Simulated assay, not measured.
Amino acid sequence: MLSNSEFVRQSLELNLFFMRIAKEHSIFLEAAFTTRDQQYIEQSEALKNIFSQLLVETIRMSEGIISPEVANSGELVTDLTLDAERETQFYTNIKINPNITRMEASLAMSSPGQISMNTVRMVENLNNRAIRAAQQIASFKSNILQNVLCCRMFTTNYPLLLDHILREAKFYLRMLTMLQRREEFNIAREAAYQETFWNRIMAEHSKFIRGLLDPTEEKLFDTANNFGKKFDELTQEARSLSQDMALLPEVTNRSLKNAIDIRDFKKQGTEGLVQCKIKSIAYPLLGDHVVREANHYIRILKDFKRGKIE
Rank of each mutant, 00 (worst) to 15 (best):
I262D: 05
D261A: 15
I144F: 01
L179I: 14
A238M: 12
N225V: 05
M117C: 03
Q146P: 01
I59F: 01
F221V: 05
A169C: 13
E69I: 06
P249Y: 10
L126H: 08
A246G: 12
R189P: 02
V290I: 15
I260G: 02
Q53G: 08
L220K: 03
I27V: 15
L54P: 00
L80Q: 13
N143A: 07
L145G: 01
I94H: 00
I144A: 01
F227P: 05
N295F: 00
R129A: 09
A282F: 03
M178P: 02
R200Q: 15
E104A: 12
R9E: 15
T177S: 14
I21T: 11
M109V: 07
V123N: 07
D264R: 09
E69Y: 10
K229Y: 11
L220A: 07
D261V: 07
Q43M: 03
G287R: 05
H25S: 08
E217F: 00
L29H: 11
L2A: 09
T34G: 13
K170W: 08
R189I: 12
P159A: 07
L149S: 11
L247T: 12
G307D: 04
S44H: 03
V8A: 09
A105K: 15
D222F: 15
I137F: 05
P112L: 12
N93A: 12
N127T: 07
N15H: 10
L179S: 12
T35K: 10
S142H: 02
L273S: 08
A71Y: 00
F140P: 01
R60N: 14
F208M: 05
L248G: 04
M122Q: 10
K229D: 09
S52F: 07
N49P: 06
A192L: 02
L54R: 02
R182S: 14
Q39C: 03
Y172G: 14
F304A: 03
N147F: 09
R129S: 11
I27E: 00
Y297T: 12
L220P: 00
V274R: 09
D222Y: 06
L47R: 14
L301T: 00
N225T: 03
I137P: 00
R181W: 11
G287E: 02
L29G: 01
R299I: 02
L55P: 01
I21K: 07
V120N: 01
R182H: 13
C150Q: 14
T101E: 08
T270F: 00
V290S: 14
Q194W: 08
N125V: 01
L273D: 06
F17N: 09
M61C: 05
S67A: 13
H296T: 03
S44V: 04
Q38H: 12
H164R: 13
E85W: 10
V290W: 15
E250M: 08
E24R: 05
N258P: 03
I96Q: 14
R167A: 09
M1H: 10
A134M: 02
G113N: 13
A32G: 10
L176R: 08
L145T: 05
K170C: 07
I131R: 14
Q243T: 13
D37W: 06
I100D: 04
H296L: 10
F185H: 12
I66M: 06
A22I: 05
E24D: 15
A108M: 08
P284L: 08
